[in-house]
């Protein structure tokens, strides 16, 4: 095992059940996160990014679905097997998560200060006064002005950006080794997005935590990621270092995502954005063969026969039969330059 490895996910499968259908939200996903590194999970809505995150925390609601197989090894401990008590001791402490919508994730009937302090009281031996003092220090740290007064504010009294900062303060309260951020900037204004990214970056430098960042925004990925995981229809379709993904994407889907990025380079204003045509497949009724085949411009021989395996060369994995030919023919997408 890699000495620096913090989290390893092995063959994770999470299925949701609704109206007699089985939705394969996470299908055979494996990857690892090294200490202090940033791993980005990229994909369209419904590609299984959030389901992967919640599976790692073992927080899939029983009423919706189940983790059917796989291991989530955090520092060697399988989070899916350990006792509930041990699991609770890790969550919120060594592993923390920030949610996409701070407006709905923060409890509307408790003050911001209370919601931060309760994590400290649950995981650290400290009384209410100490917890409150630390909560104030945390609000200061995440850049909330007038922290002392904000402690007694309720979530609805804060702006969206402030709420997200408060959630980040809660997440870093116990100095986690791994922070999972599920599209933490999607619900925010562009300027606030940049501030939040900066904040997360600074905190990572400061505390040395690893960051698992879920997003569909590739410009964010380019800025923060060490490694990138591209997900499609519940599977990892490409994985590699950020440079490999952006400079030499192998999977047609990744190329499509890169081409769909708006760019400020010359001549773009007259060019239509290239979207990945078609819609993501129905996860309860996947096409035969490669899930991306119906939308793939390069689909050819054998693509409808079986799901290509994840092939790894130079720590760069791809799930495509024809990636060698495609890479040879097509130029690197302009938008990625």
């Amino acid at each position: 095992m890699n000495q620096r490895e913090l989290l390893r996910v092995e063959n994770l499968r999470t299925y949701f059940y609704s109206q007699g259908r089985t939705v394969k939200a996470v299908e055979d996903v494996s990857f690892s996160v090294e200490q202090r590194s940033t791993v980005c999970l990229v994909g369209e809505s419904g590609s299984g990014k959030s389901a992967t995150a919640f599976s790692i925390l073992n927080l899939i609601p029983k009423s919706l679905g189940r983790i059917v197989a796989g291991k989530v090894l955090f520092q060697g401990e399988d989070l899916l097997q350990i006792s509930p008590k041990r699991h609770r001791a890790l969550l919120g402490s060594d592993i923390a998560m920030i949610f996409q919508e701070p407006a709905t994730a923060l409890n509307p009937v408790y003050t911001v200060g209370e919601q931060i302090a309760e994590v400290l009281r649950a995981h650290r031996r400290c009384d209410a006064r100490q917890a409150r003092r630390q909560a104030k220090a945390l609000l200061d740290r995440v850049g909330i002005p007038d922290a002392e007064r904000r402690l007694d504010d309720y979530p609805h009294q804060l702006s969206g950006g402030m709420r997200q900062r408060a959630m980040i303060a809660t997440a870093i309260a116990c100095r986690p080794k791994l922070l999972i951020a599920d599209e933490p900037t999607t619900a925010l204004d562009a300027t606030v997005q940049a501030q939040i990214l900066c904040l997360l970056h600074d905190l990572q430098q400061e505390t040395g935590m690893a960051l698992m960042f879920i997003t569909h925004d590739l410009s964010v990925v380019a800025e923060i990621a060490d490694r990138v995981l591209v997900m499609y229809a519940g599977r990892v379709v490409e994985e590699g270092a950020v440079g490999q993904i952006f400079d030499a994407p192998r999977m047609p889907y990744t190329r499509g995502l890169l081409e769909a990025r708006p760019s400020v380079h010359a001549g773009v204003s007259s060019r239509r954005l290239a979207a990945v045509s078609g819609n993501p497949p129905d996860l309860a009724n996947l096409p035969d063969g490669c899930s991306f085949r119906p939308r793939c411009g390069y689909a050819g021989n054998g693509c409808d026969q079986s799901m290509p395996a994840l092939e790894t060369i130079n720590e760069h994995s791809v799930r495509c039969f024809h990636w060698r030919q495609i890479g040879a023919f097509a130029p690197v997408p302009e938008a990625a330059l």
Partner: peptide
């Protein structure tokens, strides 16, 4: 609701999650 799952992600006990949150 989202805040219930969030409360669970903080490692709070089930009793605190259900009764407090």
């Amino acid at each position: 609701q989202d805040y219930m799952r969030y409360a669970r992600s903080k490692g709070l006990s089930p009793a605190v999650v259900v009764l407090k949150h």
